[in-house]
Nucleic acid binder design. Structure first.
Length: 333
DNA sequence: AATTCGGGGAT
DNA sequence: ATCCCAGAATT
């Protein structure tokens, strides 16, 4: 069999088994490149199931590029809170204004032009070309890495570049949107990390990993160690029952979100360790470290940080918070 | 080339 | 607990 037959069999499988998704139109490109762009940014490093609700709320509040460009970053972050990687929300907002100001409100269909825009990298540029403009670009995400590594039986740690070279040779010159959707759906629903259902896979008879019974060992991924960090969080409560919160910097961890003031244990503390009353702790697992914050309640009419503001519990919903801080909020109610 | 960015669902 | 998911930007 030739490579043409591989892509044909995959497209045939997709026509019958591909997922129906709000940001997808099977059989052709999506009519709204804006919707494709938003969905692609949201889907980075997360799952379809997680994004569905966020995408629905987003398109209701910001139906068009213009609506998004006119909104405040604060409101964009409110829509994004809980999704993680908050720099994406900032970049998406930046990008919307650039598109309105310099691109006549149109999302480019040229890959190199897309790569110039904030928040759009190699994968997303290709995916917008495929899904919004039906171009025959090759997309490489976690699904494609797994599918291709298994198809070719790659037993070493693979790079995205290596996968791209192999995957691009299989990419047909027509049906760009369907083919990109298909290979990703195959990885998401058939060629899964654990217990792939090879029996229904259109590429089963060509798959080297299956032939050698190595699907549970491919792809080879190296995993970094996750360290644990500690700190103290201060619930500073005034006579009116309001709590002190502050906005995090525009860069770095949880950028742009609000928080109750806290510091790592290896940094200068805002109060002495014994001050206030212990109020338990919260733990949270980030991608690259685990964090435990011991909580202490302080009665004070003034903030220990210059940018702190006092907010009543009933008004906290107006501020974007991380999931970590939502855990703290849940404790004070 | 490595590290830094969140969060949740499945196992 | 561990894995990993439609990655990009920074160092």
């Amino acid at each position: 069999m030739t490579d043409i037959n591989l892509s044909d069999s995959l497209l045939h499988w997709f026509a019958q088994n591909g997922r129906e998704l709000p940001w997808r139109v099977k059989g052709k490109a999506h009519f709204d490149p804006y919707a494709v762009w938003i969905s692609e940014i949201m889907l980075q490093q997360t799952t379809v199931k997680t994004v569905l609700d966020y995408f629905g709320r987003w398109m209701k509040r910001f139906p068009t590029l213009s609506d998004l460009a006119q909104a405040d970053l604060q409101e964009v972050l409110l829509m994004w809170q809980g999704l993680g990687y908050y720099t994406r929300a900032k970049k998406i907002h930046e990008c919307a204004r650039i598109l309105v100001d310099k691109y006549n409100g149109q999302i480019p269909s040229d890959r190199n032009e897309l790569l110039k825009l904030p928040g759009i990298g190699a994968y997303t540029a290709s995916s917008i070309c495929c899904f919004a403009f039906n171009k025959p670009e090759t997309v490489v995400d976690g699904n494609v890495i797994r599918v291709i590594a298994r198809l070719y039986g790659l037993r070493h740690a693979v790079s995205k570049e290596e996968i791209y070279d192999l995957a691009s040779q299989l990419t047909p010159t027509e049906n760009g949107a369907d083919y990109a959707s298909a290979i990703m759906d195959l990885g998401a629903t058939v060629c899964t990390p654990d217990n792939p259902t090879c029996i229904v896979c259109p590429w089963s008879s060509h798959c080297m990993a299956r032939k050698k019974n190595l699907t549970d060992q491919i792809p080879v991924i190296q995993k970094p160690i996750k360290k644990e960090r500690f700190g103290t969080l201060w619930l500073i409560k005034n006579m009116a029952g309001a709590y002190c919160i502050r906005k995090r910097p525009g860069k770095g961890l949880l950028s742009g979100l609000y928080e109750f003031p806290w510091t790592y244990s290896d940094e200068p503390s805002l109060y002495s360790k014994e001050e206030g009353i212990g109020f338990g702790s919260v733990t949270h697992v980030f991608t690259h470290f685990k964090l435990r914050l011991d909580i202490r309640i302080i009665k004070s009419e003034t903030s220990p940080v210059s940018e702190g503001v006092f907010v009543l519990p009933s008004d906290l919903k107006e501020y974007p918070f991380s999931t970590l801080m939502k855990k703290v909020i849940a404790k004070i109610k």
